[in-house]
């Protein structure tokens, strides 16, 4: 396999040349996955936090269910979202299939259980610590929820990053609901799948390296913000 060397050179060349098609795909990948993670956090963080600190019957079952949902294959999510968004499906009239919005929805559905499950874990630990103090102050549940999310933000940022990692890396869901349409719904992973199927393994691998760099970049940026917060002692 001489493909590795070729792939490295190609990846370097792609990055240096600033190929507009590549930049477009990179930007779309970022937009879709960041958008999906944002939605997933807006839903998953409060949901996970509520499950983490409320005590109610059936809670353990929900935790088990949530943890299991983390393992759902992207392609299954893709199919479910496809069936919802297809013209023949219940949300067909919205005309969202084969749009970036559909991809955001699919990845959000994929990532929300992950975010919720990890947030549940984080918040549960913190809630155990805060519990008696909050009780002694008779803190209302919504204020407690806010405080737990805010004080757990350092760990929750890592949760969001885990969600981002799962979103940006998956191909099964976006290729079904996005259709891998050039200049419309093609993202890094579907481009990689396409080049692989064309047998252009070097280009596919080069794109894969760019994807890794992208992921590293996002993680580094977020951790940079976070470590400054930790230095300030708010971690």
């Amino acid at each position: 396999m001489q493909d590795f060397g070729a792939a490295f050179r190609l990846a370097g060349h792609l990055l240096v040349s600033g190929d507009p098609d590549l930049l477009e795909i990179v930007a779309r990948s970022l937009a879709v996955s960041l958008g999906a993670v944002l939605v997933a956090c807006l839903i998953g963080l409060p949901l996970g936090a509520l499950i983490g600190f409320l005590r109610f019957p059936g809670r353990r079952a929900i935790v088990v269910f949530l943890n299991a949902l983390m393992g759902l294959p992207p392609v299954v999510i893709g199919l479910l979202v496809y069936m919802m968004l297809s013209r023949a499906g219940p949300l067909g009239p919205l005309g969202l299939l084969y749009t970036p919005t559909a991809m955001v929805i699919a990845q959000a559905v994929l990532v929300t259980p992950l975010v919720a499950a990890l947030a549940r874990q984080t918040v549960e630990t913190l809630a155990a610590e805060y519990d008696e103090y909050f009780q002694s102050l008779a803190v209302p549940w919504h204020a407690a929820l806010g405080a737990l999310l805010w004080d757990g933000r350092s760990a929750l940022v890592t949760v969001a990053l885990a969600g981002f990692g799962r979103a940006i890396a998956e191909v099964g869901a976006v290729i079904i609901v996005g259709g891998n349409i050039d200049h419309l719904t093609r993202v890094m992973t579907t481009a990689i799948a396409l080049e692989t199927s064309k047998g252009d393994l070097a280009l596919a691998l080069a794109l894969g390296m760019v994807l890794i760099l992208l992921s590293v970049g996002v993680n580094a940026a977020v951790m940079g913000v976070r470590s400054r917060a930790v230095e300030a002692g708010h971690g």
Partner: peptide, 21 residues
């Protein structure tokens, strides 16, 4: 990482995403 940067970051992400989409 105060509240303002946090909200600012989230808004920036949302705006970029929605404009690109």
């Amino acid at each position: 990482l105060n509240r303002r940067t946090f909200v600012g970051l989230a808004t920036a992400v949302a705006l970029t995403a929605s404009s690109l989409l």
